[in-house]
Design a protein around this nucleic acid. Structure first.
Length: 825
RNA sequence: GCGAGAGUGGCGGAACGGCAGACGCGCUGGCCUUAGGAGCCAGUGUCCUUUGGACGUGGGGGUUCGAAUCCCCCCUCUCGCACCA
């Protein structure tokens, strides 16, 4: 047996043992009290794993192993988010099938994850591009369709001219395509949507259940859903029979409405100008607006533009006739596409009123101020008392919104209303590599769902999957497209769009609980045994995509009777992103670092420790310029140091040395280490856990270098050190565990326990402060009384020197660590 | 513009109302070695001549016996939303 740390040899050997022995299989059924479902976001196979994956898998795997050693029954599954655009684009570039490219990458990541020592339950591996998986996407689509939660409508949608497909709102970031950064344009298309807006309220309310989410993430979702409550108010329109409804969060400012604005695209605009000389002007204006890009239109720098439509609206609270304008700052797809403009109390209305010489009337008086009779200098949108509002004058903001709304409702002029920013989830994609939407279009029957027993609708082997921009590549598979209508048998055509891949990831965590079920997506009973997920780990970049879609799906599953928990992942750990030169690591930027070189030079354990030691899991991590070489000095040499310590101890004669003061000190250090390292694991504070273990190793070396050789003490140190290190460095610890003659895997051992007496410190450093400045430190018994502390402090020569004979006017004691003396100057 | 978070040695980071800089990198020195980009041991915030002391956590103010930590203002950076009525 070699005595060197031959990481390559031992890591290869143990990896095979663990995998062949199915070491990480979750017990079935689990004990409900002892179960832990630990999930990490499954990767997209766009190549080999990169350092971002290495980081999150290192964190996640350490958590999983820690729980296992603490006696929990752990489900720790893995899979691949295998459908999607990059596969197709790569395939087009290389002239191969996306499937080929995808499976090749799955192989790479699969083997890298095993090489890294991830303790996934490999038998549960899920690949979303397998028909055995995606048939259930189709099955869910049909359930959604039955309940009216999936529907097709024509609407202006986000179109990425580069990827030649539509995108959901969540996939447009700053007006650019989330994947390729191309500016997105609007196109009017008939598309499939999931009715996520029906769940908007629950999605906001239930955020509170996610106790293990950061406030930041909850707020991100809250903002994205954008719930605002207020009132809908009906305005009569000159020359129209039906009133037009506006949405406002400030019905208390109704008396200050001095004009009325509708979106240029609003159908009312056409009717108002029909037959007047303004017809052409409106057409021109609308054309100008439509040619603006999303980015330009939403720029706050831009001057708001609009035109008077020549007609008036009647303010229902005072029957005042106010001008109706069309303006580009009012959006057709929020609220009702029409607003009442209150320039005195809304910055946008104020800007527009000033630019167009429209009247401005203040109707809210800030607290403690009287109504200003002069011209309004700036909009005031804060709270205050109502004014110039008839019977409501003096009503404060806290109650005015509610009172006015009620007053409107009683007169049939309006009602309470809630508006959301979130839009229905657009799930159609005009691309090949995805789940076919299981719908058939029949001339007589319309949209006909594919019957369950005909699922899966398998993806045909289309040769030309280059997107045309007009039609999904699936449309070229004539034999596949043209089928008989499942209802009437007449010739019909299949839907040729595929589903957004975020549908796949919206429920994959349920599939893991029952991955081989061929009669249902999963058995709800099996799922209920493991759900909800006890700890989810993954990137923050999914804050408003995957994490909202999956929460939505979960709620639908609850409504379908297939799930119990309202929230799927109440605890979520977002790892910090890995950057290189300050830029996010990504395939498209070409700054990906793959782990193979690190595996070869330093091994998986050193790489894992390097990632964990770099800082807290949530902190961003900039990959160093020296690259992989940084692993050497930071963690590889330390692992060698641990290795040598183990070998050194084992070479000592069993009867060597005698137990004395030095041994007791070392044992106490060991127990303190067990205590704090256990706490650190509990807080996912791996960097400090490693620091504590380094201190233990340093103390042990110091003990050896000063002649210490008590074998029994050292054996205990080594044994516990290995156990504490095992979740983070699974290979070295397993090897040394066996070299020490232990039976069985270290990863199936129980977590070490500390002796409270031994872990307690017997002397603490007591600080003596005078007027807040440290003047002396004394070693004292932790059980010291306050009186003894003061006595000891006053007995200090240093303290006496600073007191210069003066008696302290105040003495503060914080036993046993601090005495603070206050003296007058 | 609105909202949130963060600023600590040469570097990654500890501490989060009680000895600032744990641990590590880097650097310096010693030991060992035929040799070392190996290993072991020690030192390493800045300034002052010292035993010892002064200063020090982006800047300014405040609360407190005591502030990196709590509060207010400002600066810088990062992230999110961006005409959402």
């Amino acid at each position: 047996m070699s005595h060197d740390y031959d990481f390559a040899e031992l890591e290869g050997r143990w990896s095979a043992v663990w995998i062949d022995g199915d070491y990480w299989a979750a017990p079935e059924p689990p004990d409900p009290e002892k179960k832990r479902y630990l999930l990490t976001m499954y990767p997209y196979p766009s190549g080999d794993m990169h350092m971002g994956h290495v980081e999150i898998f290192s964190i996640h795997d350490s958590i999983a192993r820690f729980y296992r050693m603490n006696g929990f029954q752990v489900l720790n599954p893995f899979g691949f988010d295998a459908f999607g655009l990059p596969a197709e684009n790569a395939a087009i570039k290389r002239g191969i099938h996306p499937r080929e490219w995808t499976y090749a990458n799955i192989e790479k990541i699969h083997s890298s994850a095993q090489r890294l020592g991830c303790s996934f339950d490999w038998a549960r591996l899920v690949r979303t591009c397998d028909p055995e998986y995606y048939r259930w996407n189709q099955w869910f689509f049909l359930r959604f369709f039955e309940r009216g939660l999936a529907y097709k409508k024509e609407a202006p949608v986000n179109w990425c001219p580069n990827d030649k497909t539509v995108l959901a709102n969540e996939q447009v970031v700053g007006g650019l395509c989330e994947r390729c950064d191309t500016p997105v344009v609007k196109r009017n298309l008939s598309q499939w949507f999931f009715r996520i807006t029906d769940y908007a309220d629950r999605l906001v309310d239930d955020l509170e259940l996610n106790v293990g989410w950061t406030e930041r993430l909850k707020m991100l979702q809250r903002n994205w859903i954008g719930r605002s409550s207020g009132a809908e108010v009906d305005f009569r329109i000159e020359g129209e029979t039906d009133p037009v409804t506006v949405f406002t969060t400030r019905p208390d400012t109704l008396w200050g409405a001095t004009f009325f604005v509708i979106a240029p695209e609003h159908p009312l605009a056409d009717r108002l100008v029909a037959g007047t000389d303004k017809e052409a002007e409106l057409a021109r204006f609308r054309d100008e607006v439509s040619r603006l890009s999303e980015i330009d239109r939403t720029s706050t720098e831009r001057v708001k533009r609009g035109m008077y439509l020549g007609k008036h609206a009647i303010n229902p609270v005072n029957d005042e006739a106010i001008e109706i304008w069309a303006a580009d700052y009012v959006l057709m797809d929020y609220g009702t596409g029409a607003i009442m403009a209150v320039p005195a109390h809304d910055a946008r209305d104020f800007d527009f009123a000033q630019a167009n010489g429209l009247p401005i009337r203040s109707v809210i008086t800030p607290e403690g101020e009287s109504l200003d009779e002069g011209p309004v200098e700036a909009p005031y949108s804060g709270p205050g008392a109502m004014a110039r509002s008839g019977e409501f004058d003096g009503t404060p903001t806290e109650v005015s919104v509610q009172k006015v709304t009620q007053w409107l409702a009683e007169r049939g002029l309006g009602k309470p209303a809630i508006n959301f920013r979130i839009r229905d989830w657009l799930i159609s994609r005009q691309r090949y590599w995805g789940t076919p939407i299981p719908i058939v279009f029949c001339a007589t029957c319309g949209e006909v769902p594919v019957p369950d027993d005909q699922l899966p609708v398998e993806l045909p082997d289309v040769v030309d999957f280059d997107p045309t921009g007009e039609e999904s590549p699936l449309a070229t598979a004539e034999e596949w497209v043209n089928i008989a209508c499942p209802r009437c048998g007449a010739p019909a055509r299949r839907e040729t769009d595929t589903m957004d891949t975020f549908v796949d990831s919206a429920w994959y965590f349920h599939r893991y609980t029952d991955p081989h079920n061929d009669a249902a997506p999963f058995d709800p009973e099996k799922s209920a045994r493991w759900m909800a997920i006890d700890q989810y780990t993954g990137g923050i970049e999914h804050a408003v995509m995957h994490l909202i879609y999956a929460r939505f799906f979960q709620k639908v599953l609850v409504d379908l009777g297939m799930a119990r928990d309202p929230e799927p992942f109440p605890r979520l750990l977002n790892q910090g992103i890995i950057t290189m030169g300050g830029k996010r690591m990504s395939k498209s930027r070409g700054n990906i670092v793959e782990p193979q070189e690190a595996f070869a030079l330093y091994g998986a354990d050193a790489l894992r420790l390097y990632m964990l030691f770099s800082g807290p899991p949530e902190a961003p991590f900039d990959w160093p310029e020296e690259g992989v070489a940084a692993i050497g000095p930071r963690t590889f040499t330390w692992l060698q140091r641990v290795w040598r310590l183990c070998e050194d101890v084992r070479a000592l004669p069993v009867e060597s040395g005698a137990s004395g003061e030095a041994e007791v000190a070392l044992v106490k250090m060991l127990h303190r280490t067990i205590k704090v390292v256990t706490e650190d694991y509990g807080n996912f504070s791996f960097n400090t856990a490693i620091a504590r273990l380094m201190e233990l190793v340093n103390d042990t070396y110091r003990y050896r270098s000063t002649g210490g050789a008590h074998r029994a003490t050292l054996d205990s140190v080594v044994r516990n050190l290995l156990l504490l290190l095992a979740p983070m460095a699974p290979y070295l610890t397993e090897e040394q565990w066996h070299r020490s003659g232990e039976e069985g895997s270290i990863h199936r051992e129980g977590w070490p326990e500390f002796d409270a007496g031994l872990a307690a410190v017997e002397a603490v450093t007591m600080v003596v402060q005078i007027n807040g400045k440290v003047r002396d430190t004394l070693e004292v018994d932790p059980a010291i009384t306050e009186d003894d502390m003061v006595t000891a402090a006053l007995a200090s020569a240093n303290v006496a020197r600073y007191l210069e004979g003066r008696a302290p006017t105040k003495i503060i004691t914080k036993p046993p660590k601090l005495v603070s003396l206050v003296v007058g100057s």
